[in-house]
Design a protein around this nucleic acid. Sequence first.
DNA 1: CTGAAAGCGCTAACAC
DNA 2: GTGTTAGCGCTTTCAG
Lengths: 340, 340
Amino acid sequence: MKNVNIRALARELNLSLSTVSKALRDSYEISAATKERVRALAAEWNYIPNAYASSLRGRKSKNIAVVLPEVADSFFSIAINGIEAAVKAKGYHVIIYLTHESYAGEAAILKDIQSGRVDGVLLSVSRETTDTAHVQELMDKDVPVVFFDRVLETLAAPKIVTDDAESAYKATAHLIAQGCREIAYLGISDSLSICRQRMAGYMQALGDHQLPVHQRNMLTCTTDGARNFQLVKKLLQRTHRPDGIVASVEKLTTTVYQACRQLQLRMPEDVKLTCFSNLEIATILQPSLTTITQPAFEMGKAAAEVLVKMLEKKPLTAKDIRIVIPSELVVRESSSRQHK
Amino acid sequence: MKNVNIRALARELNLSLSTVSKALRDSYEISAATKERVRALAAEWNYIPNAYASSLRGRKSKNIAVVLPEVADSFFSIAINGIEAAVKAKGYHVIIYLTHESYAGEAAILKDIQSGRVDGVLLSVSRETTDTAHVQELMDKDVPVVFFDRVLETLAAPKIVTDDAESAYKATAHLIAQGCREIAYLGISDSLSICRQRMAGYMQALGDHQLPVHQRNMLTCTTDGARNFQLVKKLLQRTHRPDGIVASVEKLTTTVYQACRQLQLRMPEDVKLTCFSNLEIATILQPSLTTITQPAFEMGKAAAEVLVKMLEKKPLTAKDIRIVIPSELVVRESSSRQHK
DNA sequence: CTGAAAGCGCTAACAC
DNA sequence: GTGTTAGCGCTTTCAG
């Protein structure tokens, strides 16, 4: 019972290939009786159509690529859930590609993707990515691309983002309201859309509250955890040490907590912290962590839905071109003493 | 310049299809000069072979399926990194399937996979899975399957696991050494290989230290976080409340910390906790969390390597059939007051 | 209502 | 060294 294909079914039933094929696809051309016979045997023999033959013929693979910087990060892993939720019912399969935050890796992946292996791409670019040619090339081949979270603004593809600038503004304003006057911003890239936006929101908030923007308070972290730890420690050892921190990425949570502990700085008394993070565990840290929680699941879901629309050749509305799903500032103890 | 295929290249170069094909695959039959011409044009036109045509022909897709309960879990997301690392160099693509801990979902996925979409499968079964027929069916179709972490012992497929029983034993013995006499075990399934093993190790340790095994101390948690919280709280409110906990799964960390806090129980003074977890953030919890850290990356990598071996028809050695990579007990404050 | 045949893009016998 | 051809499994005109 190996390799059951349409030919085998046809032979067994004394029908032609095309009749069987049509019966299986429930064509109106085929009589109910024949359909029943075909379906019965197909079920009995456990016939499963060969995905590649269909793909080759129809030039659609029912695969979508999800290109991510990394997967061991709660934002991205939750986003994958959203993507999967949106896509499963439509019969699409999710191929995960990891760039490991490398531009070269990203370019290689997008190249590989041109093999027709996938029908469309969900993309969140690496922190190194500034050039857009590799994505443009894919789009030129009519492979639908939808950006989510980390976008390339100049490209004409739908973008699903959160309100990075606004939420960084809110977080910064919150720290100011809590009495901070020397607030640091920790980014992970100077080019990345989300980091620029968040930094812009941070700077705007300082400006609106008549606080100076100091270069010394804006740190760009690396992918090297140990090095980041040194950078943050140095920041917190300065004479005019920051009394507030807006960290733009989850990975830095551990770094800041450890640095504070080593330097015997108390949170929130000496330093107040807010962090872009989706870690559920934020609530049980001590102090519990004030987070800007991104709508990871919703963003993944929305991005996948727009992509599916494109794959189904449905017209995109203006709303689909840029979807902004707000993040939520959840104030906890790390930024607010009075918080219970 | 759309749809560059071999035919187009052949036409342009006044060569036949097969000559071009052979040239691109660097066949010894083709002259160096021709190869050069072909390669030059292929590069210029940015020719990328159609993955489906090759797959259909050669009956290999260069895709592997990774079937997981969930992805928003540090063990699995790190394991994906290991898988990706092992597989990327070999040119394989990773398709992620999520069962969401559902047997029905798992069975549906394995069915879908029979379409030939993938060359092999890495599988970590859902907590509901007890039946093996769905996996057996796949193996009967000669789709190579490799289990990792959560295995089905009765099936004749390679298994990559950690030393669940031993590490649970170590964790339990550690708690006993710290003075615990009423130790609870929190599982998530009565059937899952890892939970049975861990529970066995726990019971063995109790026995070896002349402590009774009480049914009341063995809790099976659900997928419902709120309900788990109630269960754990109730456990900790008992007259003879446990003074130690071995939690078999990362998700329960938050639950236990919150329950302790709400009940004003101090860790480690009132309750000592060890948890199977790969959370980096464990170090900055207060108290910092004693973990049994699983070799997630290594397990994913090893599993993928064995699968690739099978796909390449290389013989498996006895060692490949069952690989056990030890976990590490990292003692921190949640189980040991004297820990700095 | 059913069947014959072409063709998706590629590879590998098998000629020449 | 190069070319011709068959065929992987499926879908879809187009004929009957």
